[in-house]
Design a protein around this nucleic acid. Structure first.
Lengths: 347, 347
DNA sequence: AGTGGTTGTGTAATCGATTCCACGAGCCCA
DNA sequence: TGGGCTCGTGGAATCGATTACACAACCACT
């Protein structure tokens, strides 16, 4: 593959001049410029990004470490991150942690070794020494969706509390009183926050959240199935299960179906994170939708601000409830007189 | 961040010795080794992968350009690719082409500029000059799922012909005679092959595939919806629609539902590519399942063989039919006496 | 004692870019 | 005419690693 020296030789100039042409430095004569550009075209020359990075100490690359690529929420996030990064002149290397802290560490280490310009993380745990050190050492970093408390790192996330209150109000209105939750890992902020929001919302209606109705999952489908089976085995099973993410909801759906029960009569279901498939499941699933694309874009903007010397801002956007049929009430065929801001999907 | 010079100074040796210790070169004294390792630990030194790549001309990185990240098939593929690559000591940079040739080109160019060791591509079209040149110039490359004819590049893919024949036999047995297909772009191999396999299978039953029953989609949901609406507007609409990928099937499901019809009574549906959600849709969707994980792993192995000087092999694995309820017959509650190798899912 | 071989180490070249600095040419103005 | 500009250019240092080569020290043989 041709290098800058070959181009310089072909154009009859020095490598410095070639570099200046390529970087649009003003003081290059028109004559030299055309000769260089001709040589570049003739040789099919492309600058070696590795060499450039070594010299300039910038890779124009962002690292994105997400918790689980098979989760459509994170896929959509990754997509919007890549789009916004591309628009700003950066590429993205994605690391999939699969909800495993040691894999997350592997990717963070790998990305740091590659001298990425900045790191976007949705941590699977409270943070390894590696990540904490990197943050404190000044590696540009932004947390997205989940975060690690106590670090001076901007956070871009959705606030689901209002939507969870709406959801609980909706469930209460439908007559449900025994409400259970499948929580995520307590080490993640989204794992604990969603439980707290749910518990607080229940309290507003004078309802408690007993331990037996608090299942511990890991944000993956299998745990949703396992926890739901436990609920169904209780002497007094819950009437509704609220899964803290879409994959655990999928597992719950499996478990209900495996018992020969139906949603919502046997057990009603709601989920955090809305995805296109929820419109088509049997029945369509009531969910709390995050503004995923907006979160990804905002996270990239914050990170690039940090990298380029501007001051990054944390961003919190509201999530919203999307009512479908998995909790009992058939979606109204026409707008009801409901004064609440609950949205109804078209499904 | 500490460099090799800092380590050398701290350990009281030359940079060459540090490098030897790090690369496990045999002729280093035990004494020097321990001093170097101590300095490495004390400084928290990590080798700069950028500098190393420049010198060795290897990045230990594979590029993966996929057609659409939002398609669960490709997500699963990407995941297995990353896993296998990691096991073999490589990282992966994913580029999402979104079924747009110019975006595909952008990513290929970007990856080549970064001097990735090899490229895994699932082409969205017949191949741009850039990609053809790279292949001919000797860039290690492997095609996965889709390929470009006429290039000497190994191909790792699934052969769906047998499964399509089984599907058509299944549909015929259920009494369906008017069968339509939503094809992918003719520029992709999977776009044209699936139509050909379908047409050939129909011919075995004495059925034709009229133009009116051949819809042209682009592998994304919206096109599935549009084509299906067209089918439903025909004076004599088809009884079954076979979507050439899962997203177009999702679009078809939308279109059917929007008309107030139901699957399979209003219109039966089958899809190429099976995904976890198809078990939970209303009704569960009959699909042709590819051995996705195996494909991803085989593709990485072929590419790494090529990179490391061994001779890569093309691989073709069979796809298989998974019968569910979207074509009419309720899944049998117990194994039938069917002598055919058709698999039945547990849904 | 001299020869040859092994072992451990350092010096310096190298990868492909960017960029500081020096220098010559041309111009303007005093 | 000469001093000070600006402009265009090339030489060379530099980024952080790897590695060819030279060499010193040591050992083992003849």
């Amino acid at each position: 593959m041709a290098s800058i020296k070959d181009v310089a030789a072909a154009a009859g100039v020095s490598v410095a001049t070639v570099s200046r042409v390529l970087n649009e430095h003003p003081s290059v004569s028109a004559d030299a410029r055309t000769r260089v550009l001709a040589a570049v075209a003739a040789l099919g020359y492309r600058p070696n990004a590795v060499a450039r990075s070594l010299r300039t100490d910038q890779t124009h690359t962002l690292g994105l470490v997400i918790s689980d690529v098979l989760n459509p929420y994170f896929t959509e996030l990754a997509r919007s991150v890549e789009e916004e990064a591309r628009a700003l002149g950066y590429s993205v290397i994605i690391g999939n942690a699969d909800e495993r802290p040691e894999l997350q560490d592997h990717h963070v280490r790998n990305l740091l070794d590659r001298r990425i310009d900045g790191l976007l993380v949705s941590p699977t745990d409270g943070g390894s020494p590696l990540m904490l050190d990197a943050a404190r050492a000044g590696t540009p970093m932004v947390f997205v969706d989940r975060w690690i408390p106590g670090l001076d790192v901007p956070v871009v996330r959705a606030d689901g509390r209002a939507a969870v209150r709406e959801l609980v109000a909706h469930l209460y209105r439908l007559g449900h009183r025994r409400l259970a939750i499948i929580a995520g890992p307590a080490a993640t902020t989204t794992g604990s926050e969603r439980v707290e929001a749910f518990r607080a919302a229940l309290a507003e209606h004078g309802l408690a959240l007993p331990d037996a109705y608090t299942g511990h999952g890991d944000f993956q489908a299998e745990s949703g199935r396992r926890v739901t089976e436990g609920f169904l085995d209780l002497p007094e099973p819950p009437e509704v299960v609220f899964a803290a993410d879409n994959l655990m909801a999928l597992g719950a759906l499996d478990a209900v179906r495996a018992r020969g029960l139906r949603v919502p009569d046997g057990l009603a279901l709601a989920a955090f994170d809305d995805i296109p498939w929820f419109v088509h499941t049997d029945p369509p699933v009531t969910a709390i939708a995050q503004p995923t694309g907006e979160l990804g874009r905002a996270a990239v903007r914050a990170l690039v601000d940090r990298i380029e010397g501007r001051t990054p801002r944390s961003v919190t956007l509201p999530a919203r409830l999307v009512v479908r049929r998995s909790c009992g009430e058939p979606a109204a065929p026409f707008p009801t007189q409901s004064p609440s801001p609950v949205q109804r999907s078209t499904s």
